[in-house]
Design a protein around this nucleic acid. Sequence first.
DNA 1: TTCGCTTACGTGGTCCGTAACAATG
DNA 2: CATTGTTACGGACCACGTAAGCGAA
Lengths: 230, 230
Amino acid sequence: MELRHLRYFVAVAEAGSLTVAAQNLHTSQPSLSRQIRDLEDEIGVQLLGRSARRIELTAGGRAFLDHARAVLTQAEAGAEAARRVAHPAKPCFAMGFLTGHELTWMPEALQILRDELPNIDVMISSQYSPLLADGLSKGKIDAAFLRRERGMPELAFRPLVKEPLMVILPIDHRLAARKAISPGDLVGETFVTVSATAPVLRLVIDNYLKRSGLNITPAHERIISRWECP
Amino acid sequence: MELRHLRYFVAVAEAGSLTVAAQNLHTSQPSLSRQIRDLEDEIGVQLLGRSARRIELTAGGRAFLDHARAVLTQAEAGAEAARRVAHPAKPCFAMGFLTGHELTWMPEALQILRDELPNIDVMISSQYSPLLADGLSKGKIDAAFLRRERGMPELAFRPLVKEPLMVILPIDHRLAARKAISPGDLVGETFVTVSATAPVLRLVIDNYLKRSGLNITPAHERIISRWECP
DNA sequence: TTCGCTTACGTGGTCCGTAACAATG
DNA sequence: CATTGTTACGGACCACGTAAGCGAA
């Protein structure tokens, strides 16, 4: 038994399918199938129930899954513990920013850190809001400036600013001359909204449009894959 | 990182030397050295302090060692848990008997189990005494009727019966007519004793013959590979 | 000089990817 | 008939073993 088998098995269990698990693992599906079979042969228990059209965990597989996850996290924790002990015992403060918003907060934050904790390493990370929240909950980031992600009860959010929603138009657009635009004016326009990598902001915009009585269907949207403030 | 790396590292840490660890692992010393180095490269921490003449664990190595041991035991526990869940499913009482002695105790034991634990699966295993003791100490058997094996401090033995030593003869043998036979009468006979798979009984017989002043050498024995009461 | 770890290098096992096959909805 | 998992097979990589190198006792 090797950690590879456990990684593969966990991926299969979480994906519920050999095919998609193989894609997630960036390997081929037959190879994955073979590795799972080898694992089953070694521990002498059938972990997956095969039905030629789909797979499902057996009772033994469910019992094994918890242990496999624990083994993988423990192995990673061991490496992390070794790094923490071996590497300098120098305290390091990791800070996260929304991509494109670094200049909004970083100068002031760095100055405060320099004043209050002069003998500290500062690590900066720029990510999308969900990745920042993930880093916070995993302890990889000590503090971050991000949006209020839902489903993260272990995180404490404190509002710092309210951001106005803006519409950006070509200079020669029919609405460009106006001082203010009401949601109704946008009906019929090709609407470029933010990508799904910023779900909170996306939700705010969608809710605002919905409250205004508009029904911007997906047909009116163009999803952009990367959103950066100019 | 693979479990192989962890197994190797634990072996090296316990042996305190690459050479003897390689012998214990049945692999070559250069290969082991390379694997340890790969592990160090992957987690980015030097685990062993090399002094060209001997090695010792670094601080990071000591921190990693505990986790590595935990990972290995957890992996093994996962396999064992899967087997326990998959195979029995019901509470299962495993009972062991000496081969050939099942009928002596099984009926009464089964009746007691049926009365006190009606909703339980009973598993019966017939083995030689050492294998039964091994199964008991590994938790594969809950209780067994066997001989008092030595070197098993984790087992509790309770005497149930004393078995007389018997000599079995052909009906036309010169000693067959006697009511009792003294050890001295056996001198010169071709002696069929029990196999080495029953070391305790064998020891009892040998000691008895020795106390009687006899010297039944191996030349007078024929080792039988299987012993069963007729 | 010897012992113990490292480096170099050729070989074999095995893991992987492509392809063909089987089965089920 | 298309999708999903299995079997077959050729290739590449990596771990292993042998041999040579290096440094300290």
